[in-house]
Every structure is written in C-alpha cells, then in structure tokens.
Design a protein around this nucleic acid. Structure first.
Lengths: 344, 344
DNA sequence: TCGCCCGTCTACACCGGTGTAAATCGTTTC
DNA sequence: GAAACGATTTACACCGGTGTAGACGGGCGA
C-alpha cells in the first residue's frame, strides 16, 4: 500500500508538502497542489488513519453506552446520536451494557490512551456508590439521564418528573382515579424509574389522592414489553380496580395494553393508558398509544454538541474546563387513542 | 500520562521488557515480571491503544453497516453482533445507512489503512450495478443477505425463500386463498423483498393459484410499520377480497394488522397474518403475531466467526485466501395468535 | 576448562504521519 | 543593490509502542 513518502517521491516534493496539501494548509502553490493531487490519484494513495490518530492523539471516535439496541427507544436514540456525530465528522463505537452494573462499569473503563475520545453514557444499573467513578475518568463524559450521580459531569436529560406528572394528569383530568404505575424499580438502581414515579405521585398528591401500593407494578430486570405485561397482570391479580395506567415507557405500556386486552378490558373506555418515550411502535399499536415525547432528537444533538465542546478544551487540569452543563430537553404530550378525550 | 518508558525507568528494566510482560511473552523471570507489574500499578500506567494499533496495523474494530437501528430487527441484530464480537475481544463501529444507496456506498468507503479491520454489511439499497464494488475492497467483508451481488464475497443469510413459502403455506393450509403480500419493492433494489416474494409465489404456484397483482402491497421506501399500514390500505382499497396476509417483515405485519383492525376486520378469523423476523414486538402485538424466525443469533455468530477467520488470513493476494463461504442459517416457524390453527 | 545452548534481557530501527523551526525563493521597499 | 518580508518548502524530531537481532550469563556435557 502506498505511503505518503511514495506520493512525495512520485510528485518530487517532500513528505511534509504532501501532508500540507492533504490537510488543506493554505500556503501551497497551486501548481504543487495539483501535482501532489495527481500523484495521490496515480498511486491510489489513502492516508493511514491509524498513524494520523496516533500522532494527533485524537481518534474522532466517541463511545456510546446504552443498555440495549433492541429496545426501540435506545435503537432510535442511537440512530439520532450516530446521525448527529456524523454531521460533525465523528464516528461512534457502541457498547451495549445489557442493563447490568458490570456492563456499565466495563463501558466506563475506556482506556485514556484509547481509541475513544469521549463517551456518551446512558446509565441504567449503576448505583449511588459508583458515583465517584464518574468524577475523574480522564476523558470527557456526557451522561444521558438525571443528575443523580455527580454534579461534576455534564448531563443531558429529559423532564422525567414533569412528563410523568403530565401523563398522570391527563388521566386524572378525564376523571380516572385508580391509576396504576407500571415499571417500578427497586431504589438502589438509579435511573428514570424513581423520577417518573415521583411525577406520578406528585400528580396524585396535587389532587389529594394517596398512592395505593397495590397499583404499583414492578418490573425489575428491565423495561421490556414482557415485564409490562407481567407487572400489569400482577396489579390486576391483586384485585384492585384499575381505570388508568401510567407506564414508565412505551414498551411497558404496550405490554400492559396486551395484558389488559387479553382480560377483556377496553382501552380507553375501561382503562386509559399513557406511555413514555414516543417510540415508533406507539404510533402503530392497537390502539395507538398516548405518550410523552421526551425530546429524543434534541437530547442526541445536545449531547454530541457538549461532547464536541469538551473535546476542544484542553484535557489537563479541571481548572481550565468549563463548568458542568445540565441540559433539560423539551417535553411534549402526544395524544393518541389509548386515552379518553380530555374533559373540557 | 505515564508511558511504557516511564514504567521501564521505574522498574529498572528496558522498555521492551515491559512490553514483553504486558503482552505475555513467556521468557521473563518471575521476579522481573512482578517488579514490572508493581511499577505499572504504581504509576497507573495504561497502554496506549492507538500506538499499539498503529504499530500492529490491526485495530480490533470491525464495522457494522445496517440500515437503521431504530428498526427492531436491526437493533436486535446489532445487539447480537456486538455480543458475539465482544466475546472475541473485537469492538464494533456501527454505520447506519438510512436505507439509501449513498449511505451504503459511503459505508463501503472504509479506508484500507483505517481503524476498521473488516466490515459486516447488510445491504438494502445497493443495485446490481454496484456489485463490482464489493469484489476488491482491500479488506474483509461479510455480507448479510442473499448472494445476489458477488460470488467472491462471504455471505451469511437466511432462508428467505423457504421462510416466505412456509409462511404462505401456513395460510394456505388453513384454507385461505386470497393472500396478500405486503412489502413489495421495485426490482432494481436488491435485498430480501424479491426473495420473499419468490417464496410467496412458489407456495401459491404449488397449489395452482395464480398471483393476483391486486394482492401485492408495495412499500417502497423501507419496511416500516407505517408502510405496512399504507400498503395494506392500498390493497384493501383496490376492492380485492383478502383472507390472509404474508408480510415481508414483522414491522410491516404489525402495520398491516393495525390497518385491518381499523377497518373492523378480525385477526385471525377474517384475515390471518404472518410476519417475518421474530422481533420482540411480535410477541406483544395484539393479537400476537405468527412469524418466521430467521435465526438471527446464528447469523450474528457466524458472521463474526467468518470475519475473524478472514482477519487471520494473510491480507495479500486473493490466492492465499480461502474460498468464499455461503452460510444459510436455520429457519423456524413461530405460531402465535394471528393465524388460524392449522387444519389437521 | 571450554564451548554451546538456552533463558533472559536490551538496543535500535521502524510503523506513517504531523509539529516546529528553519531554509529557500521571489518580490517589494528604500 | 541590499535589506526586509511573506510565501513556499523542507529537514528532522517525535508520537509510543513492537519486531529483530544480538548481548549477557549460568548450567551442562565433553
């Protein structure tokens, strides 16, 4: 394979001049530039990317850690992030963590001298005790998700509390009072579950309704459809009356709708259902699902922008770095068939 | 950041000895080995991956090009491939092509000296005229999908024809005769559409039924739910009677089921529906979807294995390389609620 | 005791670019 | 005509590892 030296010899110039031509250095005579270009074409030369990376210390690759691409929310998020990264000439190395703490710890163990310049990380299983790991990683990190861990790290997140509260209000406004919450996770795992629950309970509280623990559907491993169906079944089996469901994501909601319909309950007549995430599925479920759009594209764009900005900064002491950013994406209610029309 | 030279100085040995310890070279005295290890720990040394890559010419990164991760089939496939790659210490750089020819051509333009050692590529928009591009890329390529392009490239594929034929037979066995095919694509784009259509028409032919073009539902951009609903609507609007649907993937099937149910048709009583891919959605749609499991995990594992084998081979002339592999993954019918019980 | 072998360790070149500083050249200015 | 200047080009060190060949030293057989 041809190297830059071969091109230089062929064009009768120095290696550095070839380098200058290829990297767009302006002070090169037009005739020289053309001669070099011709030699590049003649030899079919392609620059050795690994040498460039090695020398410059920058690979132009950013890592992305999400739990699982098979989950539409994360698959769609990954598409958005990949697109945003590509617009800026960055490539993306994806590391699914499989919803496990070990997987997430492994994702953080990116070597500093490695081929990843920075990381966009969507944690789902780390616990509070792991927070200190995020502070001095030695490379730029942008967290997707609530600022639960460390205030010294950039966060891009959605309005989990507001969204869940709005979802719950939608059902309350329609006169529903027996509203199940599907997707509860045990407290030691960090993430959106607790926040969405907070939004749910705040909405109830605001109307003077107490949370009925029989209405809480637990989905311990992950927010898959299967767990939504299971959790819904558990709530119904408890014998409590249900006329509304707030599911903590769309997959859970679709699983819950499956279980409700399997038991002969009509949506939205008997039970209104609201999801969270606005994944593509929610537009084609039967019935179509009312959901909260958490601003996925905005999150992807902002996360990539913040990371890019961090990559420009000197990597040395934290003194030279800008202060950490906390960005809240916009949220939107998407009303579809699974909820009753709003009263009034 | 500490370099290998720092460690060598600290441990009182040569740089190469440190290198030898870290790379597991056996002829190092145990005491030396321990001293080096201690120095590594003391200095918090981490090997510079980019230097290693540069020197060795191997990055341990393989590319993966799929149309879109937001589509559950590709998201789930990507998860499987990432898992298989990780088991062998490989990392994966994903490049979604957005179902466009330009996107796919861009994905193939991986520089030889680049940071990707090889590529797993799932084409969906390339046309026959592009076939020659695949022949002499200069790096190992494994194609997911039918051997439509080039016989000189490794292929891992599913039984598209057999699967679609089995899906159609399932409905024919139940006495259905007016079976729509949802997901037709125009011929110049390569891919599974044509093969699945072939399976569909073969099944009909075997019973002496002629293909009724009014039963063909066209989905031109991509196999999304939205297109499934649209194609189904177009077929129904043509006025033709429909008592079965073979959709070329599950997303199309779910979109089609949505449209059928919106028009008051019962599944499977009025219309039986079969999908293709066995994505997780199909287990939780209403009704649950009968589908063809194309052996996704097997495909992922085999693709990674073949690519690994190619990476071991000398990269020189094609004479030294093994002959191209064509691997057909196993296929399985997954019967759920959307099809009538088989007669007999 | 000498030579040989083997285990251990080291010096040095090298991978293929890019940053730096300085050389070279053609104009322009005084 | 000489000095000054900017544009153009170049030599060379350097990034941080790994391959190669060879040095070194101790045990062993002759």
């Amino acid at each position: 394979m041809a190297t830059m030296a071969d091109v230089a010899r062929h064009a009768g110039v120095s290696v550095k001049t070839v380098s200058n031509v290829l990297s767009g250095y302006p002070h090169v005579r037009e005739t020289t530039r053309e001669r070099v270009r011709a030699s590049v074409d003649a030899l079919g030369y392609e620059i050795n990317v690994t040498a460039k990376i090695f020398r410059s210390g920058r690979s132009g690759v950013v890592g992305l850690s999400v739990p699982e691409l098979g989950q539409p929310y994360f698959g769609e998020l990954a598409d958005e992030i990949l697109a945003a990264a590509r617009r800026h000439g960055l490539q993306v190395l994806i590391e699914p963590t499989g919803f496990t703490r070990d997987g997430e710890l492994a994702a953080l163990r990116v070597p500093r001298g490695g081929l990843v310049d920075g990381l966009i990380f969507s944690p789902a299983a780390l616990v509070q005790a792991d927070a200190h790991l995020l502070d001095e990683l030695g490379y730029p990190l942008v967290l997707l998700g609530e600022q639960m861990f460390s205030s010294s790290v950039d966060h891009v997140t959605m309005r989990n509390i507001d969204g869940a509260q709005a979802a719950t209000d939608l059902l309350l406004d329609a006169g529903r009072r027996q509203i199940a919450a599907i997707g509860m996770l045990h407290a030691e795992t960090a993430g959106s579950a607790w926040l969405r629950y907070t939004g749910y309970s705040k909405a109830l509280e605001a109307r003077g309704i107490e949370v009925d623990t029989r209405l809480l559907g637990w989905a311990d491993d992950a927010w898959h459809r299967a767990n939504g169906a299971r959790a819904m079944a558990a709530v119904l089996d408890s014998g409590v009356r249900v006329d509304g469901v707030v599911a903590f994501n769309d997959a859970l909601a679709i699983g819950a709708m499956y279980e409700l319909q399997a038991r002969g309950l009509a949506i939205p007549q008997d039970v209104g259902v609201v999801g969270f995430d606005d994944i593509e599925d929610s537009r084609y479920s039967v019935p179509t699902l009312t959901t909260i759009d958490p601003g996925r594209r905005e999150i992807a764009n902002v996360a990539v922008d913040i990371l890019r900005r961090r990559l420009q900064e000197p990597q040395g002491s934290s003194a030279e770095r800008g202060s950490p950013v906390l960005y809240l994406a916009g949220m939107r209610i998407v009303e579809r068939e699974s909820t009753p029309r709003r009263a009034g």
